[in-house]
């Protein structure tokens, strides 16, 4: 791979294709310090997208050959509109369906074909050998996250995802495998499912020492894939991506609840922390669905709302620590 970096916002962007075309996929993670972007995007839009927009303009990220914006929500579409007017960026809009049936798969397949054409316009070339190796590497990540070894210290998963961002998936797998084998959890650690939107580093840090099942696009949702089924590469990738544990933006919330039911059967979940991202409509309705689900299962749930700001850590500290203390106290009895 020598074609430079391709930045992307949403994990529905297939890194396999980017690597197969000779580029390094680089996830646009929120910056460690919030960067203002009010003059680019309204302050009542998704804080994740706003912060990435500000960080991109300030030179926080390395140089990108191109940027892929999946149309995950309206905020990301606004971001695309801004970037597409800038001369400095080659940007591609990956239109992501809101449903996951056969028609949606066909539509997404066409989107992936267009993405490949765009990558070729940037000088990439879909190399059979590199593509095959990349598909194997992404499949390996899926295997590593598939079984019960998904429990880990959240802080380590977060660091791994940041440290290996923009590096070949093979290197990430090696680090992840070593880390999962050597993981050293503290005695009496609580087992917490962290769900909802992409969490701020501060929330992850508060949970240091606890066992975290990370159901966000930095964890399970970002790394699992469905089966590679289809007649050609693009239909197989389309199937695999649309049939992974769905993001809350998809309209069929039932599959998400099926994932939680499976997790409840295989993992001992003592509590759930829901990260509600400010100004995210999807978070608002996803939380209500999850609230009912966890109440029915008698699993304590805490909602933590942030805008990914560093200064919010103090405010959420008491809330999260108190929640952990109530779990340690043993609940209703």
């Amino acid at each position: 791979m020598s074609g430079g970096r391709i930045g992307f916002l949403c994990t529905y962007t297939p890194g396999e294709l980017i690597e197969g075309a000779g580029f390094n996929p680089y996830r646009l993670l929120p910056p460690s310090e919030a960067v203002g972007s009010e003059d680019l995007l309204d302050s009542n839009l998704c804080p994740y997208v706003r912060q990435v927009a500000g960080a991109l303009r300030s030179g926080y990220y390395p140089h990108f050959q191109g940027i892929v914006i999946a149309r995950s929500c309206e905020a990301s579409l606004h971001f695309y509109n801004i970037l597409s007017r800038e001369r400095d960026f080659n940007v591609f809009l990956l239109d992501l369906p809101r449903q996951r049936g056969p028609r949606a798969q066909k539509y997404f397949q066409a989107q992936l074909e267009n993405l490949t054409k765009w990558l070729e316009e940037l000088g990439g070339k879909l190399n059979e050998e590199e593509l095959s190796s990349s598909l194997d590497d992404y499949g390996k990540t899926r295997e590593l996250f598939q079984d019960t070894r998904i429990r880990a210290k959240g802080v380590d998963i977060f660091q791994l995802a940041s440290e290996y961002n923009g590096r070949p998936r093979r290197d990430f797998n090696a680090a992840l495998e070593g880390f999962l084998n050597e993981k050293c959890l503290e005695e009496n650690a609580l087992s917490i499912l962290l769900t909802g939107a992409i969490p701020p580093q501060g929330l992850i840090n508060i949970l240091e020492g606890e066992e975290i099942i990370l159901d966000t696009c930095l964890g399970l949702r970002g790394f699992l894939r469905g089966e590679m089924q289809g007649k050609n590469l693009f239909s197989r990738l389309s199937h695999a991506y649309l049939n992974r544990p769905p993001c809350p933006r998809f309209l069929d919330g039932e599959d998400r609840l099926n994932l939680f039911s499976r997790l409840l059967e295989t993992q001992e979940i003592q509590g759930v922390i829901y990260h509600d991202l400010g100004f995210c409509d999807v978070s608002s309705y996803d939380f209500l669905i999850q609230k009912k689900f966890w109440e029915d299962q008698n699993v304590p749930l805490l909602k933590v709302k942030t805008e990914l700001g560093r200064g919010e850590t103090g405010q959420i500290l008491t809330r999260v620590e108190a929640f952990l203390e109530t779990l340690e106290e043993g609940g209703e009895e």
């Binding site: 405010q315 809330r319 108190a322 203390e325 109530t326 106290e329 043993g330 609940g331 209703e332």
Partner: peptide
């Protein structure tokens, strides 16, 4: 509080 006087649920106004 539960029967043992331990906190089992809470709501906060801290913002």
């Amino acid at each position: 509080l539960n029967r043992r006087g331990r906190a089992v649920d809470f709501a906060m106004n801290d913002k």
